[in-house]
C-alpha cells in the first residue's frame, strides 16, 4: 500500500497517515494519565507517604531512559538496512523493559506493607504505576511482534513502519513514566 501514489489533498503518504493515526492514539493515551494525575492532585494535593522509595524510582527512570536509547538505536539500524542491529536493539529494549517490570513488582511487594491499596495514596499509586506497567507490557508485546517480523526480514531501510511505530510508542511510554515519577515520587 505504501507504494501507492498520493492522490489526496495534501499528498499524504501511507506512512504519514499511519504515523498520524498513532500520534492521535498517543494523545488520547496521554489524557488517560492526565486523568490519573488529576485524581492524585485533586484528592491528595502533593502529599505522599515517607515510604515512597525515590531511589528505586530513580533507578526505574534510568532503566527506561536507557531503553529509549536502545530503541532509538534499533530504529537507526534498520534505517541503514542493518537487520541484525535492529534485532539487537529490540532485544536490548525488551530486556530493559522486563527488568523494569521485575523491579516494579519488587517495589509493589515492599510498598504493600507501607501504604496499602486501601489508602487513597496507595490506590492512586498502584493504579498509576500499574497502568503504566500495563502499557509497558503491551509495548514489549508490540516489540516482540516487530522482532518476529524483523526475523522474517520484512523490514527494509526504505520501508519499516512497524519498527517506527513500535519505537514511537515505546518512547511515549517512557515519557509517561517521567510524569509518573514526578507526580508520585518527587513531589
Amino acid at each position: 500500500m505504501s507504494s501507492e501514489a498520493a492522490v489526496y489533498e495534501g499528498g499524504y503518504t501511507r506512512l504519514q497517515i499511519n504515523r498520524m493515526g498513532l500520534w492521535f492514539f498517543i494523545i488520547s493515551e496521554a489524557f488517560m494519565f492526565l486523568a490519573l494525575h488529576s485524581y492524585r492532585f485533586l484528592a491528595l494535593g502533593t502529599e505522599k507517604p515517607e515510604a515512597v522509595n525515590v531511589f528505586l524510582g530513580g533507578v526505574l527512570t534510568v532503566i527506561l531512559l536507557a531503553s529509549s536509547v536502545t530503541a532509538h538505536q534499533a530504529e537507526k539500524a534498520i534505517a541503514r538496512g542493518d537487520t541484525a542491529g535492529l534485532q539487537r536493539g529490540l532485544m536490548a529494549t525488551m530486556g530493559l523493559g522486563v527488568l523494569f517490570l521485575l523491579l516494579v513488582a519488587y517495589e509493589w511487594g515492599v510498598a504493600f506493607g507501607e501504604f496499602p491499596p486501601s489508602t487513597p495514596f496507595g490506590s492512586i499509586f498502584y493504579l498509576t504505576t500499574g497502568m503504566h506497567a500495563l502499557h509497558l507490557l503491551s509495548g514489549i508485546g508490540v516489540l516482540a511482534l516487530v522482532y518476529k517480523a524483523a526475523k522474517r526480514g520484512i523490514f527494509t531501510a526504505e520501508s519499516h513502519w512497524g519498527v517506527q511505530g513500535g519505537v514511537l510508542y515505546w518512547h511515549f511510554v517512557d515519557v509517561v513514566w517521567l510524569s509518573v515519577f514526578t507526580s508520585l515520587y518527587l513531589l
Binding site: A35, S38, Y39, L42, A43, P117, S118, T119, P120, G122, S123, I124, Y126, L127
Partner: peptide, 19 residues
C-alpha cells in the same frame, strides 16, 4: 477495596464528579 472514592477509607467522593 481501594480507597479512591470511599470516604470510610479516606477517599474523596467529589473527585469522581470532577473526573
Amino acid at each position: 477495596s481501594t480507597a479512591f472514592f470511599d470516604p470510610v477509607q479516606g477517599g474523596v467522593p467529589l473527585v469522581y464528579q470532577h473526573i
